[in-house]
Nucleic acid binder design. Structure first.
Length: 506
RNA sequence: GGUCCCAUCGUCUAGCCCGGUCUAGGACACUUGGUUCUCAUCCAAGAAACUCGGGUUCAAAUCCCGAUGGGACUACCA
């Protein structure tokens, strides 16, 4: 076996790319890049009945969003059409049907496979009877022992048939899984799998083996659910006289209830995380650490660091549970580690979703706003709420709401008292703000001025700042008041305070 | 039912291969405190695990066996 690394991510286009797919893709990608190898995308569309046309564009978009660039295989060209690159194509199995047929015939000639004429109904019944007798449900090998004359006759008369693998009835098949070590299977316990269906399409098992060989795949890195069918694949490799690739079976990602991740478990489609406001590098970082750990105590890694450190023998054997809480935390880490300018492209989409009659999103100032709120947004989607002090055209509140701010928490004061208190605070603020020059309207300067003046008048923060916060942001929960005011600029800040005072006087 | 895989805090994990340095470390979440005009960030502290039973050994989270538990597979699906 050559030491050139070629790996593939081989999804079947039966639905949207989900987290499990993403994980398989990511580990293949990391392994390929780490070993300076080739990362191949292969589309396993051999089940016509489950084919979903939107699936492939979704897979390509997801790979692109997460930065898992494919070296060979389908890609979206500049016209938005699916094209393929690489010299081992086609990379879409439905375009390789003659190849599989040829190899299936070769297996029949070698007597490693045989035609089977059993109807689905008969198979169903055989299985039914077996399970009634508490036996393992499996094909009873009736057509395997059919005499050649009858077989020829059946073929000639055009009875629908499939090609089945003639699994050895004795001996064991063992292999060294790169993650799990030696795994052994009793050949006699394995069914005579269908290799070529009656519609001329191959099953996964045939297509997989043929393509992995033809595409010179060096390492098959796939989910653990494939572990039990690996001996079938090995038997096929042996029958063809080919060298099998190395195998590595990844532990599964489970939902909170410890079962296979499915729709019930929340935002499973991989691109949903984009729409929920997660950074691709945060998701990649999180997923990489689910079932893999380079050792040590670090949690935050860039993609290139992951590539440098990645190795299959550090992959865990046990399945892991997807924890959205930790992803959210990690997203925050990545958001805070980036500059506002770097964040802008990711944030734009969320801002574009805001109603334009209420929000005024000025592209040029997004970065400025981000510096103010970057520390407190766990996801990019939160920019709408936290940035609204700036983007919202009009901060609206009623007189009552403003007055309410003046209420003492303990002893309740009369409405007039609380209105007065609010008014007093805002008048004070207005006065201070007017004293700060346009040029020095910075958080630091503002803070100093306010502190100085408050001290002079015997006021404490609580007497002024909550009122100002509400006036500026329209919320009792917001970013730093001074940061917000500096971000807004003197003119807009003054306008808001003045407007609030006017409302109070009505 | 059969086959295979797996097993450290609620969760992600370090340690396991090459037994002693483990009164088992880190992180998320949780609780408490500090910083603070709010919410976050940040800082400090706390609670929280080697599934069980045998064996090997002077010594086992680490090696072996078994049980239990969980998961995957068991289709003319991948």
């Amino acid at each position: 076996m050559s030491d050139i690394i070629r790996v593939r991510f081989a999804p079947s286009p039966t639905g949207l790319m989900h987290i499990g797919n993403l994980r398989a893709a990511l580990f293949n990608f990391l392994f390929a890049r780490h070993g300076k190898g080739t990362f191949i995308l292969r589309i396993e569309d051999t089940d016509k009945t489950r084919y979903v046309p939107e699936s492939l564009p979704n897979i390509l978009e997801a790979l692109d969003w997460y930065g898992l660039n494919v070296d060979e295989g389908p890609f979206m060209d500049s016209n938005g059409k699916v094209a393929e690159r690489g010299d081992s194509g086609p990379y879409t199995q439905s375009k390789r049907l003659p190849i599989y047929r040829r190899y299936a015939n070769e297996l029949v000639e070698k007597k490693v496979a045989y035609p089977c004429f059993c109807t689905p109904e008969r198979l169903e019944q055989v299985r039914h009877e077996q399970s009634k007798r508490k036996e393992a449900p499996r094909y009873d090998k009736r057509c395997r022992v059919m005499d050649l004359v009858e077989r020829e006759r059946n073929i000639k008369s055009g009875i629908p048939m499939v090609i089945r693998l003639a699994m050895p009835t004795s001996g064991i098949t063992e292999f060294n899984d790169l993650i799990r070590g030696t795994v052994k299977f009793e050949n006699s316990s394995i069914d005579d799998q269908v290799l070529l269906k009656s519609d001329g399409y191959p099953t996964y098992h045939l297509a997989n083996v043929v393509d992995d060989h033809l595409m010179r795949i060096s390492h098959v890195i796939r989910a653990e659910e494939w572990l039990p069918s690996t001996p079938k694949h090995l038997v096929l490799f042996k029958a063809f006289g080919w060298n099998p690739p190395h195998y590595a079976h990844l532990p599964m990602i489970l939902g909170n209830d410890r079962t296979k991740l499915s729709k019930r478990h929340g935002a499973v489609p991989a691109l949903n995380y984009r729409d929920l406001g997660f950074l691709p590098q945060a998701v990649v970082n999180y997923i990489a650490l689910l079932g893999w750990n380079p050792g040590g105590e670090r949690e935050s890694y860039s993609v290139s660091e992951l590539v440098d450190l990645f190795s299959l023998n550090k992959v865990n054997k046990a399945p892991s549970i997807f924890d959205l809480q930790k992803l959210i935390w990690m997203n925050g880490i990545h958001i805070r580690s980036m500059s506002p300018e770097q964040l802008v492209p990711y944030v734009r989409w969320f801002l574009s979703k805001l109603p334009s009659d209420e929000y005024d999103v000025d592209d040029a100032t997004v970065a400025k706003v981000l510096t103010v709120i970057q520390d407190r947004i766990p996801t990019l989607a939160d920019i709408a709420q936290w940035g609204s002090f700036y983007f919202k055209r009009k901060i609206s509140y009623t007189k009552g709401e403003l007055a309410n701010l003046g209420k003492e928490p303990v002893r309740s004061s009369s409405p007039t008292d609380s209105t007065k208190k609010t008014e007093e605070a805002l008048k004070f603020a207005l006065n201070v703000l007017e004293g700060v020059s346009n040029l020095t309207f910075t958080p630091l300067e503002l803070r100093e001025n306010f502190m100085k003046m408050m001290q002079a008048e015997g006021k404490v923060n609580k007497d002024v700042l909550p009122f100002l916060r509400y006036t500026i942001s329209g919320s009792t929960v917001s970013a730093d008041v001074f940061d917000m005011m500096a971000c807004l600029g003197k003119e807009r800040t003054l306008k808001r305070v003045e407007e609030a005072l006017m409302i109070l006087r009505t």
